[in-house]
Design a protein around this nucleic acid. Structure first.
Length: 699
DNA sequence: CATACGGTCCCG
DNA sequence: CGGGACCGTATG
């Protein structure tokens, strides 16, 4: 056995020539000798696990127990005895004058009298030169080096001794978690990643986003020049890198005081008056208005720098359009950017994919702008298909159709509200990558057609059809959604979007000759739902009372046009004092009174709830997203279970917390505050539990 | 791998 | 403004 141990903070490594049965206790002794770190201060990691001396039944654990193989590397993270970390952990107020401390490194600032970005005493994140990961540290001193850039002395919380580092290696502690929709390609973010064992908890790194996969809520990014690192959405924070490092300029090290044409104005190199720097929509280079000879912002939405304007005789709308042209010859069309092809940003998990019957939390009359949202809610999962279900499940009870959508796409459909005639799918020529087409052949009783037949209580299911007669209610419950497009054929269609109309049952199914002349499968469904239908007076009253409105996916966008003009012409300036002329009133989501009461009752999380409620929220989904974002347990990255609320105002699963304490990690996983050993891990926040049970009902 | 009652932009 | 072409994506 010849594995290695690496000291994560110094980068030093030792090679072990011991047996696989080396007890962890003895490993600690070896490390003590070689690295001079006492066993009690050693935190040893392997494949995301922290090595422990013995198992629960007091048995000594060995390298073998952790499956450490030759060529593997065990990481040593020395732990400094946690000094009372006092206050101001998150108080990284920039550019505060350094107190005239006696620190050996503190010299009289040079003539430029550059001020430090971080003051002495501040807790910050500092990049470890060896691993590239960021660790909590305290600023101890500051001076200017010969290159006129700042040099700091810092002390890591978990490692003894002082280190010098440069401004570019220091960040404010990240504390803004990013929702998946707020993560943009090419942006810098802070992620938790484990190089040895991706997917497991690791260290915090700064990463550049390559790709956002909203379907799986994961992000592919580049960490330490290693591309393709996959990170779960909930582990991603906004980078707190100071503004001037946003591009990480190679030339000037993004020093704000130095002129640089790469990261400043292309013409003069200056970085002052950043709010008057315009960015070219083609090459993204910046130019001062004054350097262009302009006094005000141009009227046009797009703007191209002199170079790009000259290079392209036909001014084209930037990268996107160019790419579309490259993709396909002839015409240069630009498809596939719409909601139809966007993919899901989340998946309903409160019920399984093959769940029959209503979805907890989804009421008759609720309405969404796009099919994809209906899919996200778990009501009707397929993206395009009208019938959801399978007839091929091993478990006969799972054969059937969970849901259908009435979209008016089949001419043989007849809608009478409380009952309707539905047409099966297929019999269409979809070649040429189409999603719909005219009937051009006979439909067969397979796939989803067969599934829908299984929803009728008649057995066996055969291509002779079936009629349940009086017993129609014994069929499987089918969730029914009506689309606005149905308006053409039916008065029961919603005004806009896709509306959940409740449970229907398949009374009978039979083969018939369709209007097209080809054979189609037809189904009669009858409503069987305790909630009144949306088109009845009673139903309308409920919709009114509960405030169900069509939930828009992009509330910012006008309902009509699809034009997207990201009008961030200017470089982000911290305070936009030129207020937009009174925004059009948008429909804001009003949550049910019952929810509000429960939330108010959770007084321990008042700050957190205030934070959620002060945001502009447009829909129930929106609200749940926000709640999920602020409440996610930072250890397991799920919504907390049996959660304990810390004094610093964060929520952790009881089990996660206990495990953390067992590993002698006593810092809050969210803000790294010292939780102290006196936090009662049995003090479950029942008030929060009540809210979570209501907002995220379990199946 | 084939299928699918979306959604968008282009064009007439 | 309406119809045609056709894109990515979830599902079985």
């Amino acid at each position: 056995m010849s594995c290695r141990v690496r000291n994560s903070l110094t980068g030093a490594e030792i090679k072990l020539n011991e047996s696989k049965l080396l007890p962890i206790k003895q490993l600690r002794q070896i490390i003590h000798e070689k690295f001079d770190v006492e066993p009690s201060l050693q935190r040893l990691f392997f494949k995301g696990k922290q090595l422990e001396d013995c198992s629960e039944n007091e048995k000594d654990l060995t390298l073998f127990d952790y499956s450490v193989a030759a060529s593997d590397v065990i990481l040593l993270m020395p732990r400094k005895v946690l000094a009372e970390m006092e206050t101001n952990i998150n108080d990284a107020s920039p550019a505060e004058k350094v107190k005239e401390e006696k620190t050996s490194t503190s010299e009289a600032p040079g003539e430029g009298s550059q001020e430090p970005t971080w003051s002495v005493g501040t807790y910050v994140d500092v990049k470890d030169k060896d691993t590239g990961a960021f660790f909590l540290a305290q600023v101890k001193g500051f001076k200017l080096n010969e290159n006129q850039s700042g040099e700091y002395t810092v002390e890591f919380t978990e490692y003894p001794g002082e280190f010098t580092t440069t401004e570019t290696e220091i960040r404010n502690i990240p504390r803004n978690k990013l929702a998946i929709q707020d993560i943009k390609v090419d942006e810098n973010v802070v992620v938790n990643y484990n190089f040895d064992n991706p997917g497991q908890l690791g260290f915090w790194y700064e990463a550049k986003v390559e790709q956002v996969k909203r379907t799986t809520r994961t992000v592919i990014c580049t960490i330490n020049k290693e591309t393709g690192c996959q990170v779960k959405n909930l582990e991603i924070y906004k980078s707190e890198a100071p503004d001037f490092t946003e591009m990480d300029c190679e030339k000037c090290k993004t020093n704000p005081k130095r002129k640089c044409k790469d990261c400043g104005c292309r013409k003069c190199g200056g970085k002052e008056d950043s709010e008057t720097i315009m960015m070219c929509d083609e090459c993204n280079d910046g130019y001062h208005l004054k350097c262009l000879g302009l006094t005000s912002l141009p009227e046009d939405d797009e703007w191209y720098c002199p170079q790009c304007k000259n290079e392209n005789n036909i001014v084209c709308a930037g990268g996107k359009a160019m790419k579309a042209k490259e993709r396909k010859e002839g015409g240069g069309r630009d498809w596939g950017r719409g909601q139809a092809t966007e993919g899901r940003s989340k998946e309903c998990t409160i019920v399984s994919k093959d769940h029959f019957g209503p979805i907890p939390g989804i009421e008759v009359g609720m309405c969404w702008q796009y099919r994809i949202q209906v899919s996200e809610e778990g009501i009707h999962r397929p993206h395009v298909a009208g019938i959801s279900g399978s007839a091929k499940s091993k478990d006969r009870n799972l054969r059937g159709c969970q849901s259908i959508v009435l979209s008016g796409g089949y001419e043989d459909d007849v809608d009478s509200g409380d009952s309707f005639l539905y047409t099966g799918s297929g019999g269409r020529d979809l070649s040429g990558n189409k999603r719909t087409a005219a009937q051009s052949s006979d439909q067969t009783l397979d796939r989803t057609n067969e599934a829908l037949a299984w929803s009728c209580m008649v057995r066996p299911v055969t291509d002779k059809g079936g009629d349940a007669g009086e017993n129609w209610r014994e069929g499987k419950p089918v969730r029914v959604v009506r689309a606005y497009k149905l308006k053409k054929h039916s008065v029961y269609a919603p005004e806009e979007g896709f509306r959940y109309d409740g449970i229907y049952k398949v009374k009978r199914y039979w083969q018939d000759k369709g209007e097209s002349g080809f054979k189609v499968w037809r189904y009669e469904l009858i409503r069987d739902d305790p909630s009144p239908a949306p088109w009845t007076e009673e139903g309308r009253a409920i919709i009114e009372r509960e405030g169900y409105v069509c939930i828009m996916r992009n509330p910012e966008e006008k309902p009509g046009a699809g034009g997207d003009s990201a009008s961030k012409k200017r470089k982000s300036s911290d305070n936009d004092d030129n207020e937009e002329p009174a925004k059009k009133s948008r429909k804001v989501y009003e949550m049910a009174e019952e929810w509000k009461q429960l939330i108010l009752a959770d007084t321990r999380n008042k700050a957190l709830w205030d934070q959620v409620l002060e945001k502009e929220i447009y829909s129930r989904t929106d609200l749940l997203d926000q709640v999920r974002t602020v409440l996610t347990c930072q250890i397991c990255f799920e919504l907390p279970n049996q959660q304990v609320t810390t004094k610093c105002g964060h929520n952790i699963c009881q089990d996660c917390l206990k495990q953390s304490f067992k590993n002698e990690v006593f810092t809050c996983p969210t803000c790294r505050n010292d939780l102290g050993k006196d936090l009662d891990t049995n003090d479950i926040n029942k008030d929060l539990e009540a809210v979570l049970d209501k907002l995220f009902p379990r199946a």
